[in-house]
Amino acid sequence: MTSLCMYFQVHQPFRLRRFWPDDRSGFFRYFDERSNREIFERVAQKCYIPANRTLLESLEEHKGEFMFSLSITGTLLEQCELWGKDVLESFRQLAETGAVEILEETFYHSLSSLFEDKTEFVEEVKEHRKMVSDLLGVKPQVFRNTELLYNNTIAKIVSNLGYKAILTEGADHMLEGRSPNVLYKAKNSGLPILFRNYKLSDDIGYRFSARWWEGYPLTAEKWASWAAGVKEDCINIFMDYETFGEHQWRETGIFDFMEKLPAEVLKQDLEFSTPVELTRKYSPVAEIDVGDFSTISWADMERDTSAWLGNDMQRRCFEEIKLLEPFVKKTEDPEILRIWKHLLTSDHYYYMCTKWLGDGDVHSYFSVHSTPFEAAVNFMAVLMDFKAQVFKKLNRMA
């Protein structure tokens, strides 16, 4: 019987404010408290609360048969603690069912795995592990990197940290005609890899309400019949949680679709599984070799790092942030360190992307900036001011 593995990414960043030096200090000198709270509360009401309620009801209705996984970033959990205790409680209720596997990732949804020195990456993973344990009472066993960024080195570090598998994108140029619907293993570590079936995932995540699409309107029965056509080990359906109610508004019927999906899937020759269960049920069929210069992700048509490092603005900002690391850590100042880590969040670089058409629309969706150029200029203004604060602190310590 084919296993259907559904995974949802839950994330909101701390966005930068339109920066101009003033008398503010600390974290909110750089990050926009009002805008971040407004966006969080909007998404909570449109997505998190109703989606959690819908899925909790489905778990109860199909007890022992329906299950899925969530990866919740540390930045989103921080926002829950600040502005949404009820949201945090609803995630805790999902975790307590035992049918929802919580995955590991970097605390800050950051690009730290792309550093040459992976020390920061490991620190952020451990920080996320502690927060998930403290707030949700679970210890993740499977790893999902920021934006599904993956290469052999990342897999080896994740394996050394004790995780049982890693998730990534079923990119055509990497699979080279092979199926994403079986497990593979990473070169040099043997870590099991779960590849996203991007077609069936995007049928829900991107095309659900597209009237131009030949599959419109998409019903739970229709989608389940498509999934049943996959006669292999597993179908990995990975998507943003904000698909429900935010990217696809309630009026599109997305909640009704998700409410009916478990029953329709179970009518087919399919069963639900979580990522860790897949590693118990199936063995890898082949080794996958992804070098550091061929890093893959689930972003855009290219499925590489170009969504965050594809132009000179993005690369310059990222290099400047990396260069600050030893100086920031030398201050041993918790607030300075917190600010620097939040500046590593991938969203800041994503908003600077100059791609257009469909991908460009996705890049601008949650941005508070009118253009990628404005995003880059604002980030650099923040960075220059922050750098001055770092060296001022170091001079006082000398």
Rank of each mutant, 00 (worst) to 15 (best):
Y241D: 00
D312R: 14
E96I: 01
Q268Y: 10
A171S: 07
L191A: 08
L70P: 09
G64D: 11
L344S: 09
H363P: 04
L76H: 10
Q9N: 02
V138W: 11
A286P: 04
V10M: 13
E251F: 00
R34M: 06
D233R: 06
N188T: 13
W20G: 15
K355L: 11
D256A: 01
P372F: 04
F272Y: 02
M239D: 01
N152Q: 05
S364K: 13
Q268N: 14
F66N: 03
W308E: 00
G84C: 10
K139W: 07
D233L: 08
L59S: 01
L59V: 02
H128I: 02
W249M: 09
R250F: 06
Y350N: 07
V138F: 10
A299C: 08
I49N: 00
I166K: 09
F391A: 06
S283Y: 15
F208P: 04
C317P: 11
Q12E: 06
I166R: 14
F373V: 14
I204D: 09
W223T: 02
L103V: 04
V276L: 07
G215D: 14
K139E: 04
D347Q: 04
A99S: 12
D202E: 00
M352N: 11
K329S: 01
T279N: 08
C80Q: 01
C234K: 13
K126F: 01
Q141F: 01
Y206F: 11
D117I: 07
L175A: 08
V10G: 00
G190R: 08
L103G: 12
Y7N: 06
F391S: 05
A210F: 10
F68W: 11
R129Q: 07
K322H: 07
D304K: 06
K341A: 10
V43L: 03
E123S: 05
E176M: 12
L343V: 14
V290A: 08
K63H: 08
G98M: 01
I204E: 06
E332F: 00
L218R: 13
F27I: 07
R129A: 13
Q45V: 00
Y198A: 03
T305V: 14
S201F: 03
E105R: 13
S273A: 15
S112P: 01
R207A: 10
S189R: 05
V368C: 03
K187Y: 12
E120S: 06
D86E: 10
E33C: 02
L175E: 12
S25N: 01
I102F: 05
V87P: 03
S273T: 00
E60F: 12
